[in-house]
Write a protein that binds this DNA or RNA. Structure first.
Lengths: 208, 208
DNA sequence: CACAGCCAACCTACCAGTAGGTAGGCTGGT
DNA sequence: ACCAGCCTACCTACTGGTAGGTTGGCTGTG
């Protein structure tokens, strides 16, 4: 029984893991070969240049993201619940093994990446932003969320702030303590909950 | 006239710049030597191991931070103005030359850094958090800021959220567009402004 | 003053290790 | 016969780091 290029898939999965742990320039073909028990030249057979692997990792990441979003949409009940699932998944991914999200990882050494990957990366972050924006729009529409700022609420701006904060918190919480990720995201979400009496009841408070 | 170890200072400055642009493992002694017009071995004379340079960079960064904070304290008028100065300085640093803040840069390749540097890094992020916390406490005390969430306002939690968001926004705005940094930080700050009629007047709105 | 000694700062020349990448050969399934 | 998949063997470039030598300015001492 041959693996019928199972190896390629395994390479992608190991790469994705190493990417999150050490960044794109933080792992080598040697690392990949070692973990799969093959030789370095064999890795080059599947991904001739490391840039090819980079592109493939972008595709892999996109699938990973979309699969997550689909899951949150299926299981989630309303906007706030979806966001909380997103946050819980993010925290689990990051803190089980000291990883970053693959997007942040690629973003880290973006300046020295080929232009093709940079463009793909912009596209990826757009995909994520689109989903979160959709969730915020849903929350604003059904009254789960509201923006107390003057003017009309802008779900895209809120989503952007949400993502920026989430990524920053994941990043810094590795250093300062995981509990601060939860704390910060709760504090952010709190401020978008509508003003109700229940809001002062911890039972309905945001718990990520 | 000898430089009387001017070289060491220059090495630190070039290192700090390269750190922000490419991360700690993203530049080499060869790079430093080239930029100063000396040989690689001479760099080793000043910093025998790269870890020594790392530690020295932490000290350098601390001075850089403290100097900035002192500046904001002297020039700033109240809490919100201080925060805005902090944000403007951050944006200027980051977007003039596609740099990260040195703390984020070190944080990026933290896992593969020696323990001594990791500890120093925790200390550094504490220094930053302390200053921002102080500013938030000032703002809460003098009524410039308020937290609409239930329970007593926690200036440290607010400061943490502020910093996380700022770092995340700096990081992601390189990819998505600088203007979103300003937009997001404004949106965050807006929600901590007290509810006044003026708040609906754009003239007194937050502009970073 | 002259001179010896010291030392920071720099140099050339090297090391082992690893990076990404290539050339070409073997093998087993279709 | 073909070819994906894997191999050995190799390349160049570069990494952090070391050994050992040269220079030239400061210093204390006769």
């Amino acid at each position: 029984m041959n693996n019928r290029s199972n190896t390629r898939q395994q390479l992608l999965e190991v790469s994705a893991d190493l990417l999150c742990r050490r960044g794109f320039s933080g792992f080598s073909y040697q690392d990949l070969a070692q973990q799969l028990g093959i030789r370095k030249a064999s890795v080059h057979h599947h991904f001739p240049q490391k840039a090819d692997l980079g592109l493939a990792l972008c595709d892999w990441t996109e699938q990973w993201l979309l699969q997550g979003f689909e899951h949150f949409d299926r299981q989630g009940n309303g906007a706030v619940d979806r966001l909380q699932r997103y946050l819980r998944a993010s925290a689990k991914h990051a803190f089980n093994g000291d990883r970053q999200c693959p997007l942040s990882a690629l973003n880290s050494d973006m300046p020295q990446l080929p232009e093709a990957i940079q463009e793909r990366l912009r596209q990826l972050s757009h995909t994520e932003l689109d989903w979160v924006t959709g969730v915020f729009r849903m929350g604003l529409d059904n009254g789960e969320l509201q923006d107390h700022s003057p003017g009309e609420a802008d779900p895209r701006a809120m989503a952007r702030l949400f993502i920026f904060t989430c990524k920053g918190a994941l990043f810094y919480a590795r250093l300062q303590g995981q509990e601060y990720f939860t704390q910060s995201m709760s504090l952010l979400l709190q401020q978008w909950l509508p003003d109700t009496h229940d809001n002062h009841n911890t039972a309905t408070g945001i718990t990520v």
